[in-house]
Design a protein around this nucleic acid. Sequence first.
DNA 1: TTCCGAGTCAGG
DNA 2: CCTGACTCGG
Length: 502
Amino acid sequence: MLRQAGIELAGVTFDPMIASFVLDPGRRSHAIENLSLEHLAHALPSYEDVVGKGKNAQGFPAIAPSVAGDYSGTRSMAVLALQAVFQPFLERMAAEPLFRGIEMPLIEVLVDMEWRGIAIDAEVFARLGREFQEELSTLVRQIYAAAGEEFNLNSPKQLGAVLFEKLQLPVLKKTKTGVSTDADVLAQLAAMGHEVPHLILEHRELQKLLSTYVDVLPGAVNPRTGRIHTTFNQTGAATGRLSSSDPNLQNIPVRSPRGEAIRRGFVPGPEWVFVVADYSQIELRLMAHMSEDPAFIAAFRRGGDIHRETAAIIFDVPAPEVTSEMRARAKTINFATIYGQGPFALAKQLDIPQQDAKEFIAAYFERFAGVRAFLDRQVEHARDQGYVETLFGRRRYIPEIKDKNFNTRAFGERTAQNSPLQGSAADLIKRAMISIHHGLRAQGLEAQMLLQVHDELVFEAPLAEVDAVRDLVKREMESAADLLVPLVADVGVGPNWLDAKA
DNA sequence: TTCCGAGTCAGG
DNA sequence: CCTGACTCGG
């Protein structure tokens, strides 16, 4: 906002939203109105109070100076008063390094990223729009023909009626309110040879990609800059991750061929290229480091494919003899472990009996006893201390861990196991972002960081700077922390987001 | 017209 | 496990 007015803010030393986030990232809101009400017992006028809401809303410039002044002035006073409240807590909780060393310096990095924005190729999106629309129309005709009637394909309720009542397909899963028609269910029905579920799956994919990305992103281009400017929320995710919204550029498709086509539509400025870097298996590496499990550490130090390595250990065969089936199993259980999943969730994921999943997990933890101990330690810590923390001391409180309800408690336990890993990964990439931001300036490079997608950074750079940027990014990402296992970042260069990814 | 919960699914 | 967006329907 200030930059638009030609004002460059410097020397920002204390942001109460960030302080609140560091002290308790699990809070519902870190909005200044709420912080003021709670910590200062003082109600601030909300933005909506001042400009109105809905169709009556006016722009801030239209607000009478006395009202706008009151709005801004009371906020400024709240900021100062909140600093007095939070500063002693930051010190007492040893949260200063996280606050001063990571979160506060990150603000200007994110401001620059948002300000710069990212370009898309309008031609690509226009073409995809036509193609997807065409395919969608064909599918809709086929589905109506196969179902023998027309209905709203976007309504799970109507779809359920057609599939499970009219066509008499077996009900495999239920939701709170009715019959489930999610992708999992449809895939199983399709595998049983039913045509309609297969067509619906195809329809769902196209509908999703079209209505969430292809149709929307071109409209998100700022006419003044010709680029899309997302908002990175620094206080939104309880684990310490960033989130992105309006539009969310952290969930751009990539897993399907059509998703890849969308990613090809994100492009650098003319004559520039994308440099894309992503951490290799960062959460698993952190698990190896934090658990100090000798087998896991050795597997990472051997280099190579970690899922293959773990498969070799679990199934007790030499790494070259690991089949793709074994590797897929190992990969699934590796992720299940990061997420703190138990036999129930794993069984569902692998589509095997719960008893088999139980034995599988037992075999896994027998080989990786250090990992088991680490995960147990997190749960125990959450019970004793009320919170868990990351490598850089980011705390997350987990009151659910003492809940009387079994499901709530189990949720708390999974959170206790997952948050230190997900949160430490967030700490690391944030550190890397700060040092890369400084490095680019120090070397006088024009290249700029555009996006962060949890374990990935997207830059655009002039061709002449590619080597320097690649080296800087890789070096800073890999040295963001000194772990017991190597920290590896893969860097790629290309003419669009898809092709720049290794 | 607007809001909200539920279901679904895109990413990590 | 962590998110945000779209659609439906009350």
